[in-house]
Nucleic acid binder design. Structure first.
Lengths: 192, 192
DNA sequence: GCTAGAATGGACTCGTGAGTCCAAAAACCG
DNA sequence: CGGTTTTTGGACTCACGAGTCCATTCTAGC
């Protein structure tokens, strides 16, 4: 693949991602992507021979990377209580800005969650996210700010579930309170 | 509408719900529903004049009622720690049984979450669920088992977010650990 | 039992969107 | 350069699924 080729491919993925963020995966057609990215049917199938599913999966990968990178550098630096608070604020702000469209969820229900590729993307995302939180907890245990008897992985799992659910509630109802409550209560409980 | 009419309508909704539970909302067509319920196009549009969207919304209502009724009577009777544990087990069992298909989520991304009707259904479900949990917490405060200074609504919001997220993770990855962690950690923190 | 309104069956239209195909243009490499 | 491969444009096919329509059958009340 030539330099021009990779550029086009990337343009397609990013355009598709933007389209899906704005209008949802259900409503987005290949023609929409074509129009937005200034490409042709030929190109779409040249770069994604397996068609729409392959493109959607590529977009899903792209979006899942954004989820974590949008939380950096705070997520990777949970080394003091103010830092935890900064991360908490970052997460809330990120999802407030995103509004009620969740591209990844949208993508996943389109692809079918059972699909090996789709599952791999989400599993990878969840694992990495939980690992970073657990590292933060372990660091706080190291400096004596969190009870050393706590199971860091289990606590991280619970906290991550709270975030996920808070985001879910916000997407479904438009209310941010559950996300805030989950983060605040979760962090407060670590802190005791 | 005659007696026969309501029976048919209900048969359609339940058949559609079953189809969607098995194969997802994206993959389910009116023809599938027709075949499964032994009805004709004429009937489908007779009972749901606005077509597929109206049917899907009816199915969504139906499913959202199941979510809460599947947790009864435990959810309505959170009056002792063993009762909380029984509820927790019920929730875990329910979602283990459901597997990786989430009909409601599937339905919602199909309908578009912004839709007034769709949003009303989810909001109602979340509200009622959270209210029941909060009542349980208040009861435990009443008998001195939970710190009276705790904000019951906020704690319920956080716990519900944990459940939602745990379910979400399980649907996405197939793993039940986050749901268990969210429930166990959440309840343990009430208990202190 | 007769009639108005409800319920049913199923053939038909119609738009849309995924995917195919091939020829023209551009890029790469010796 | 010249040949080869990649990239691009866009017309075309094809299937499928939502929704329409009307003729027929059934139901309920008088």
């Amino acid at each position: 693949m030539t330099r021009k080729g990779v550029a086009t491919r990337q343009r397609i993925v990013e355009g598709a991602a933007a389209e899906i963020r704005e209008r949802g995966a259900v409503a987005t057609t290949l023609d929409d992507v074509r129009a937005r990215t200034g490409t042709s049917k030929g190109q779409l199938f040249h770069y994604f021979p397996d068609g729409k599913d392959e493109l959607l999966l590529a977009v899903a990968k792209h979006e899942s990377e954004r989820v974590l990178s949008d939380q950096q550098p705070q997520l990777g630096d949970l080394t003091s209580w103010p830092a935890w608070q900064a991360w908490r604020d970052r997460v809330v702000a990120r999802y407030l800005a995103q509004g009620t469209e969740c591209p990844l969820n949208s993508l996943m229900s389109q692809l079918g969650r059972g699909t090996p590729g789709a599952r791999a993307v989400t599993t990878e995302l969840i694992d990495q996210w939980q690992r970073e939180i657990a590292n933060g907890i372990r660091h706080m245990q190291g400096i004596g700010e969190v009870d050393g008897a706590l199971d860091a992985d289990r606590s991280a799992a619970a906290l991550l579930a709270g975030i996920q659910g808070g985001v879910g509630v916000m997407i479904a109802t438009g209310r941010i309170e559950n996300l805030e409550a989950a983060l605040d209560v979760g962090i407060a409980n670590l802190r005791r």
